[in-house]
Design a protein around this nucleic acid. Structure first.
Lengths: 230, 230
DNA sequence: GGCAGACCATACGCTCTGTCTAGATAGTCT
DNA sequence: AGACTATCTAGACAGAGCGTATGGTCTGCC
């Protein structure tokens, strides 16, 4: 409906003037999908809905994207790029307080990214298993965080009792899950501070022996190789 | 299968004799679906596939179940019942070694349940968000574990630095995620021992400050044999 | 014999997907 | 100007899948 049925084809809707806005339609699709994702789940959105929201034709849609999932993939790439993923300085050498602050900061950054990009991230978490490309995309994304965390764990020799890589993978996916639960409003993580508190606590507890807040933990334990792990 | 196209209606396929096997068809549906889930994802299974596998008609299917998701709900209930969920003695008072052993045991039990019921649990994890009833079912299931864990945390006053309930929720969902990753073969959790090691480490580290990593690798621990990694 | 219940086969209407055709429009080339 | 090309539109289409409905058939029981 809308200004659509005014008789003639609504031509000037999009100025086909310059070359630079050549991807106009592509962007309209992405934007419309993003907006729809803020209201419904991906499986509740039909391609026809996107068509209507972006005010384009079916042909155009399939010219730019292979499928609904393909659109989601593009949105996810946008989202994580924008959140300049590398913004994970993570752990750093330093005294106990500094490590705590650094870990907590990284976790808060994650929360911020999820707050800003909730609809898209929610969608990828719910759908990455239903499409090979999405599966690869999301696993790769998680792998990025895992690799960064692994490096850090190995560098300051924390959490030496278990395989650093396994620990890093676990912490990464823990984040994925809790941020997601927060995004869909499952208590107690609907409160962002509670979320950050717990995540930080678990990170600190599994990386260094001391828990989060009480300051009784000793510094550095650089040994870290008690089992002669490869 | 296959004895289907022998011409006449295959009557005696199921003895309609007694009253007790009245639910024969219902069970055939559940069993067929379970088998199909061992091979494909739920979204790749059409109702027609279940019909063929169970060798029943469309009408019968919808007599016993409302939908594919309804079947999954029944399967999930079966699965967790069978795994006598309550089998989570979890943490118990005791010295460091005993606590470690108890936690590890509970986690191993979880791994066993997931090993036995992998197809069904994989399916519910992948689909609980796409249906209100499944959402409630799974959240309730997680709530069960969370409640048990919360009680235990409060009882022995561990992990006092954060809200016990939030911590318990986080640990529960961490398990859900890691068991799931194991079930779909994501490394390093395709190795069950690595999975149990890390989960135990994180539980210990966040419940008690002395985590499982403090240098004293005394006997209580099975050593984890340091299998390297792929 | 006749009734009721369980089940079967099949068809139906609907929604959604992805492809395809034909036509309109705008900028470009000669 | 007129032809050309790329882009986009509208809409038809086939195919899959879902959930419902209809009519027939078998079995056991009164």
């Amino acid at each position: 409906m809308e200004e659509k049925a005014n008789g003639g084809p609504r031509r000037e809707r999009r100025t086909r003037a310059g070359r630079e806005d050549d991807r106009d339609i592509r962007r309209a699709i992405l934007e419309a999908t993003r907006e729809l994702l803020a209201e419904r789940r991906l499986d509740e959105i039909a391609v026809a809905d996107i068509l209507a929201a972006a005010d384009i034709s079916r042909g155009s849609f399939y010219f730019y994207f292979e499928s609904k999932h393909d659109v989601l993939a593009a949105l996810v790439r946008q989202a994580v790029d924008q959140g300049h993923t590398a913004a994970r300085p993570w752990l750093r050498h330093g005294d106990e307080d500094e490590r705590y602050a650094t870990v907590r900061h990284g976790i808060s950054e994650g929360a911020r990214l999820w707050r800003d990009q909730a609809p898209v991230l929610r969608a990828i978490v719910e759908n990455w298993r239903s499409d090979p490309k999405l599966t690869e995309l999301w696993l790769q994304q998680m792998e990025g965080y895992t690799a960064a965390t692994t490096t850090r764990i190995e560098q300051d020799g924390s959490g030496a009792a278990v395989d650093p890589r396994a620990l890093a993978t676990a912490l990464t996916w823990l984040g994925e899950r809790l941020y997601y639960l927060a995004a869909i409003g499952v208590p107690p993580f609907d409160d962002e501070e509670a979320l950050v508190d717990v995540l930080t606590h678990i990170w600190m507890g599994s990386l260094y022996q001391g828990a989060s807040s009480d300051g009784d933990e000793q510094g550095g334990r650089p040994g870290a190789d008690e089992r002669g792990r490869p």
